[in-house]
Nucleic acid binder design. Structure first.
Length: 272
DNA sequence: ATAAACGCCTGGCGGC
DNA sequence: TGCCGCCAGGCGTTTA
């Protein structure tokens, strides 16, 4: 499930493939992945050139001649590049055909991904980007900010880190890794988090995500970057996916449970 | 007002 | 071997 590091990997990959290219036409084969009117989307995006690519939270932001194209990969969204002559795979739901005859194809088995076309000059002030919290490396992400956000609620810290309105870009895998590195139980209620623990969370959020970005993200079955290049961070995961294995610090058997409906891995000895 | 539950989706897996 | 039911899981929507 692409989180910030995987989205950045895809973004870099797209830069090398499509920057400066012009979209000749666009065909949508699954209406529900387009937010707004599909026919309008197809018509509007034609003849626009890809000028820049960035990310905000887990969103890919493609700056075009007139508009910004926002893409959320959700669970299994990815891009493939194919000559326009090659028949469409059943999971390829949107085909962007460039003027050089190459398609960029949005492939999404689970059909959870979303694409939105918005005016580019105000894209960060509009929904959904204006609802996102700070990026993992934003200097505004401080202990005071987190404690203020935590103050009135009583949900587990695990669920708080998944709340994109507070910190944008953390998903289920890095959430477990950040809490393990911080020695905090995912079940800990957020309002009981101390200033020292909040500082740990911030520090480890930066550490874990930076390292993962450096390594190209985590390759699991549902993530593959657009050129088929795989990330390497899966070899660095300390806790996520290691049910019944020994904790790398104390050797205690790693627990797997559900918190807020999400599969959660933690060490019951190291994480209090 | 907040929080839990549901719905969207399909491939893969365990059980029989 | 084949079929069935269940699960994963981000996030918007609905219900409690």
């Amino acid at each position: 499930m692409p989180e910030k590091p995987e989205v950045i990997t895809v973004s870099k990959s797209l830069e090398t493939r499509i920057l400066g290219k012009t979209i000749q036409s666009c065909q949508v084969y699954w209406d529900n992945c387009i937010v707004g009117d599909t026919k309008q989307f197809e018509k509007e995006i034609a003849d626009q050139t890809i000028e820049a690519i960035t990310t905000r939270g887990k969103w890919l932001v493609l700056f075009l001649s007139q508009d910004a194209l926002l893409i959320h990969l959700r669970m299994e969204g990815k891009f493939f590049f194919r000559s326009h002559e090659i028949p469409r795979n059943k999971h390829e739901h949107v085909l962007f055909t460039f003027t050089d005859g190459i398609d960029m194809r949005f492939h999404d088995v689970r059909k959870f991904g979303k694409l939105i076309l918005l005016p580019k000059n105000e894209v960060f002030q509009l929904s959904p980007l204006n609802e996102l919290g700070y990026e993992y490396n934003d200097p505004n992400l401080t202990v005071a900010y987190l404690l203020d956000k935590f103050k009135h609620k009583s949900i587990p810290i695990k669920s708080v880190l998944l709340d994109q309105r507070i910190i944008a870009g953390i998903g289920n895998i890095y959430d477990d890794e950040i809490l393990f590195a911080s020695h905090i139980s995912p079940l800990q209620k957020e309002k009981k988090i101390t200033a020292e623990e909040a500082a740990n969370i911030i520090e480890n959020t930066k550490k874990v995500l930076s390292k993962a970005i450096e390594m190209g993200g985590t390759t699991i079955k549902s993530f593959e970057s657009s050129e088929g290049v795989h990330g390497l961070f899966q070899n660095e995961l300390s806790i996520h996916g290691r049910k019944d294995q020994a904790c790398p610090i104390c050797g205690t058997k790693i627990m797997n449970t559900k918190i807020g409906g999400r599969g959660t891995y933690y060490c019951p000895h190291c994480q209090k």
